[in-house]
Write a protein that binds this DNA or RNA. Sequence first.
DNA 1: AAGGACTGCAACCGCTCTACT
DNA 2: CAGTAGAGCGGTTGCAGTCCT
Length: 379
Amino acid sequence: MGRAPCCDKANVKKGPWSPEEDATLKAYIEKHGTGGNWIALPQKIGLRRCGKSCRLRWLNYLRPNIKHGGFSEEEDNIICSFYMSIGSRWSIIAGQLPGRTDNDIKNYWNTRLKKKLLGRQRKQQQVQQSRRTASFKQGMIKRSENIANFINIPAGFDNQNPYDLPELPVVPVANYQTHNPQLIKDQASIKNMLINLGGRFSHDSDTNNTSFQYPIDILSTSSSDQQFYQSSINVLSCTSAANNNNYSQFPSTHCDASNGTGGSSSPTMFPGLNDQNNNLQVDHLHPLSELEVNDNNFAHQHQQLGDFYYQATTETLNNGSTAGTSTASAESEISWGDINSLVYSTQMVAGYETGCPQAVTVPPGLPIVFAESTLLGLK
DNA sequence: AAGGACTGCAACCGCTCTACT
DNA sequence: CAGTAGAGCGGTTGCAGTCCT
């Protein structure tokens, strides 16, 4: 047996509200309030409407200080950022935009913003793809050098060929950290830098989640600036995982090749570094001076703001899962009907670029919670 | 000019959560 | 503790207006 209906369906009016109905409802609520009982309200004032319908009408259209239409660029950015962070939690998003209702934002997103964002995303991907192609080989050489330095590659090894790595010992995360106390210092340095830029970290002891809030004013920053933030968070994410030795913090949906759920099937970037016991994670960080930075102003700006600019180059070599997820597969995930793929594809592009396949892309202006459900943008 | 396709948005539906008994 | 009802929420629908052919 289903639950009882909230009202007499046969005797309630449906469809658009008339001005008279609006006036009746508004006048009553302004004078008496809702009385805490929407179901009983329409009968009190003689409206042939369902209580839920009255509530919706009041909340979305009749209550004071409601704004309709005319979304600003800033509001667009906030909505996009929150959507990519927390998904379709319209009421929460509406809470960030005074005068906007969840219904309004939901409609606006579904009809316009989604298309606008996807268009922008596609453009960015085209640019990133061309940049990646040019810098990929260079990056691979640099990475192999760093790994070789760390694990003492035998003399005679051709370190100009990133694919020509010899069989290497498995290096557990804990050991790597012991060898690299710098890692923890680096993490603190990046945190300080992000805080200097106006971001905020907070920790929820109940859920053990760490949150990061970007400064709102970076919403309109260039894509290189956004990559900078993203890379910084990637470093924190990856090193945090190393610190905790807890991989479950990271979304594995698109990274786990072992279970065939969308992970890359391409060969590992570093043959011989695979750890069948799932324990190997090698992190290494490049100071800014080592990096190719196309935007000199950007580099200068961020050098002034923090101790270092690090490129996240964490290699998570995990059960044959690799950083080499193809861009084509990431792009192929984008469809008009599945906006969540936008989040995932961005993650994969970022992961590919930084060599951290499980890195989490952090859209600017977002509250970031390092918990799987939130990172995935799931309900 | 007509009619089919598309778009935007108000409103509804059905589910979950929460407070109350 | 279980049952119930109301509140709240997100997904979906239906319709009016606009655009396109």
